[in-house]
Every structure is written in structure tokens, then in C-alpha cells.
Amino acid sequence: MTDASFPRRRTGRPAFRRAAESVVTRAIAFSGIAAIVILAAITVFLGMNALRAVGDVGLWSMITGTDWFPTSKEPSYGFLPAIVGSLWVTAVALVVSVPVGVAAAIYISEFASRRTKEVAKSVIEFMAAVPSVVLGLMGLAVLVPSIRVLMRLDTGLTAFAAGIMVGVMALPTIISISEDAMHAVPADLRTGSLALGNTRWQTVHKVVLPAASSGVFAAVMLGVGRAIGETMVVLMLAGNSGIVPNTPLVSVRTMPGTIAGEMAEVVQGGEHYSVLFAMALVLFAMTFIINLVADVVLENQRKRWRR
């Protein structure tokens, strides 16, 4: 080419289109940043509202306090009944949902035919869409009376009842994330194991599960996060008593249940109000850490099989 100038082509891309492009790009970037900003705003908002409680009662004495009597003359704001109550509910939920969830994931990932797999996956998505208040109603109508009769308790409104229903709620998370993890295990490891004269089940047990273990762990952690934060079901089923429970067979209160149950009745800006915010902060910190751990583990698992 002897002519030095590169011939410019008229692209016919008018200025307003270029402007539109840049506006759209920015809007998308903004949406991404907004998520982080909102998260930060939540933390700040909780922290500011909790300041008074931290000053008046003290964060440590709230977390370690064993009595929750916020409305008595000498109010005591101990979180332990709610923290331990939440842990009991979560423990029961895990005992219910982990074996069932992992078994379901193994079935869907390793044994089900393609058609069954599709059906099962959509059924599980439906399960996730059931409003928690509906599960709470079912629990009240069926579970609570049965537990009262079967276990010979004074009331069926217990951590046990709430835990079972919360476990049902955590199932879809546990199933679908574990199933993803098993699905990500390369198929040639399975064929390798089968070709060595192993049955399907031996292959699952010796190759697939170990290889997917971190993903299954993350699924369980996400299930825990779901269970700890669950509000409506525990509010309806757990019984909301104020003592530190030493068994799941008694009425308990949980952090989300306490906040949701009492927030409407407190003086705005008062001490009790601020204490509830402090409790929300503790809850938020717990779920945040659990989700973070799960995410890190999941990411590592994904990297391991990207080859």
C-alpha cells in the first residue's frame, strides 16, 4: 500500500448509539457495585442502631447473657437463649436434611435416568418455592401435635419441630449444590472405576463422594446459613421461650424469631430496640461467615476439576 492513510469506512454508527452503549455499560457496572454498597449500608445501618445497646449493655454481656427478659422492670438482654435456640434448631435441621439431601443428590447425579433427573430437579425447585409460612402451617397442624403426643411433652412447640421444618426448607439448597458438585466430577473417573470391576455404588462411595466432598461440605454450610436465618417457621413452631435450652425437646427462641416477634412492639430508638439491632448484627455476622466459608470451599472445588 503506497497511500499512507488507512481508508476510513463510514460506519454509520450515530453518536447517540455510541452514547447509549456507554450508558448501558455504566448502568450494568453500577448495578454490580450497588450490591456491594447495599451490603455495606446494611452493616453500617445495623451497627449504628446497635450502638446504644453496645454502650448501655455491652456487646460481650449481651452475647454471654443467659436471660432474655427485655420487658421486665430490670430488663436483661442475654442472647444465649436465642443463640443456643438457633443452634438447636439448626442441629435438628441438619440431622434431617443432610442424610436425605446428600442421598437425593447421589441418586439424581449418579443413578437417575435423564428423564427422572429432569423431573426431580424441577420438583426440587418447586420445593424451594414453597412459602415458609405454608411449611409453618403444616408444622402447626401436623408436626406439633404429633410431637406432643409421641414424645409425651407439655407442648409440641419445640426446637425439634422447628428444626424438622427448617430442615425441609434447607433440602433444596443442599440437594442442588451437592448435585452440582458430584456432577462436576469428571466422567472418566467413573468409567475408570467401573472398568476396574466396581459397582456403581462402590464407584460413588470410593471416587465420586471423596472427589465432591468439599462441594458437599459447602452445600451443607449453605444449608446451615439458610437454617440459622430462617424466621417464619421458627416463629411459628419453636415456642419462643426465654431460657437457655439444653435439649431440642423444649420451647426455644431463635435470633430471627426474636427480632421479628418483638420489633413491632418496642419503642423506636429505645434500649430494647437497639438490642434487637445488636442481635441482628450477631446473626448477620454468623450467616455472613458461614456463606463466605461455603463460597471459598466451592470455588476451590471448582478450580480443582477445571482441567
Binding site: 469428571p186 472418566d188 473417573l189 468409567t191 475408570g192 472405576s193 472398568a195 471416587v207 471423596p210 472427589a211 480443582r304
Partner: peptide, 8 residues
């Protein structure tokens, strides 16, 4: 197999 597939 075609691609080496040692177990992890």
C-alpha cells in the same frame, strides 16, 4: 482409556 484418568 484415551485420556489418563488416575483417581484423585
Amino acid at each position: 482409556f484415551q485420556k489418563p484418568n488416575p483417581f484423585p
